[in-house]
């Protein structure tokens, strides 16, 4: 029987992994691991994101990959009556999470991004960064609903699940996502707690 020292941080990540991975048993392990990493990093990412736009540069993504991530995150979480992922700088969050992830997970993500980029070029003659929203929508739609894609779409399905989760995590931990979109009033000091006042819930 082997015995080993316990690394609590890794364990916490694994706990999240177990509770978060239930619905996606068919997904490769790296997918939920990277999504969990994003959730863990959601409160610390702006060490990067808070720097001004003129000085930020991606640390993992190439400039063209960064453009692709901007396009994909905005596709997932677009500007509507409130700003979308691009305005919320979710691409910087994605880059930061990748910089903190295991090398294997990072390379799986890049492999998935490259796969999708190749598919985009093959289908519309443009890479992800150069494609229109309509073209991106056509390419991503078959990958976005698990169980419906063709068998050889598996790398794209896994990648899309990952970037979708990271986008949701990144977007809703910004002021744009939490305050403007979800409408949180931001008040942290209340004199009294009212609770539910809806007559129909009583």
């Amino acid at each position: 029987m082997g015995t080993s020292e316990t690394n609590i941080n890794r364990r916490r990540a694994l706990t999240q992994l177990v509770t978060g991975a239930v619905g996606v048993a068919s997904m490769p392990l790296w997918v939920e691991s990277l999504c969990a990493q994003a959730r863990a990093e959601a409160h610390t990412h702006a060490a990067q994101a808070a720097v001004t736009a003129s000085t930020w540069a991606p640390s993992v993504l190439t400039p063209r990959q960064n453009e692709a991530v901007i396009a994909l995150t905005e596709l997932i979480m677009p500007a509507t009556d409130t700003p979308g992922a691009k305005a919320a700088l979710v691409n910087r969050f994605v880059d930061h999470v990748l910089s903190t992830a295991d090398a294997k997970e990072r390379s799986e993500f890049i492999r998935g991004l490259t796969w999708l980029d190749d598919r985009c070029r093959a289908r519309v003659g443009q890479d992800l960064a150069g494609a229109t929203t309509a073209q991106l929508t056509d390419i991503v739609t078959p990958l976005a609903v698990e169980g419906t894609g063709a068998a050889d779409d598996a790398p794209g399905i896994a990648f899309f699940r990952t970037i979708k989760s990271m986008t949701i995590t990144g977007y809703y931990t910004t002021e744009i996502g939490l305050r403007q979109e979800l409408g949180d009033d931001g008040r942290m000091v209340l004199a009294a707690f009212e609770g539910c006042t809806h007559p129909e819930h009583q």
């Binding site: 999504c35 979480m77 509507t80 976005a144 995590t169 809703y172």
Partner: peptide
């Protein structure tokens, strides 16, 4: 302040409809 609820990932699709559903 924890951001999105973890189950939000399970809402299908992407784009404006996803954003509406999460809200």
């Amino acid at each position: 302040w924890n951001g999105p609820q973890p189950g939000s990932d399970e809402i299908p699709g992407f784009g404006a409809s996803l954003k509406t559903q999460i809200k």
